[in-house]
Write a protein that binds this DNA or RNA. Structure first.
Lengths: 110, 110
DNA sequence: TGCAGATATGTCGGATGTGACATAAGTTAG
DNA sequence: CTAACTTATGTCACATCCGACATATCTGCA
């Protein structure tokens, strides 16, 4: 963004910065969200390979189908703890987690 | 454990099983605890490499020294979310997390 | 020894994630 | 088409984790 446009926006009361700034995220919070997304995707993949429904996985997890749906969708209300427990309950191994973490995901218009 | 001793203990009202059984942990909960330990150790290592005190890291994290101490010690009151945020705040990369996860830790009398 | 910084441990009120539930929407087979 | 199953989304009371604080212990160093 050029300086002129920035000045104009700021004069109008807007704060200008990155998306993370806008959402008031620290960089580590942004990294955590990224990680949750990656692991949510892993859970879905491992669960399907195990021929489990969300309901079935929820049973193993002692959780509920709606939580599993949310965790696979990267919903902000789900903790990393639950996502990782779900991955293990679905049959993932540590190495699967490690791979999911370092794997690059495709990004829209990237 | 031999069957005789088991019978005796069970007759006395004890339930006999693994440590995880005793603590009423599912296998995925046990795996999660293991993971938290590994990552807590990683945080300490990355923090020291960055010449940060727990206080200093707590500042970056917008948390407190006591939380950092607990997270590095594998305290049960600390979420995986906070541990991972701490790792990133200390300067860890995704690959560092991945390595910490798969690395085997030395176990007492293992 | 004594001082200073670092780390460990316990507690607490308030913030956030929890499972459960309802229900809508999507999918598959008869 | 319907029926059965699966997945998505919103809500709520309750449980858990949070940062903050106090305080104890550890760890050099003068």
């Amino acid at each position: 963004m050029d300086a002129k446009r920035r000045k104009k926006l700021e004069a109008a009361g807007f704060r200008v910065g990155t998306v993370a700034d806008f959402l008031e995220l620290t960089v580590e919070e942004a990294a955590l969200i990224d990680l949750k997304l990656s692991l949510g995707i892993l859970v879905r993949s491992v669960r399907k390979r195990a021929k489990l429904s969300q309901q079935g996985l929820a049973g193993r997890l002692h959780s509920s189908q709606s939580r599993v749906a949310k965790l696979e969708a990267g919903d902000a209300s789900v903790s990393l703890d639950l996502i990782v427990k779900a991955a293990f309950a679905a049959g993932a191994k540590k190495a699967d987690l490690a791979n999911a973490i370092v794997k690059r995901r495709r990004v829209a218009a990237g």
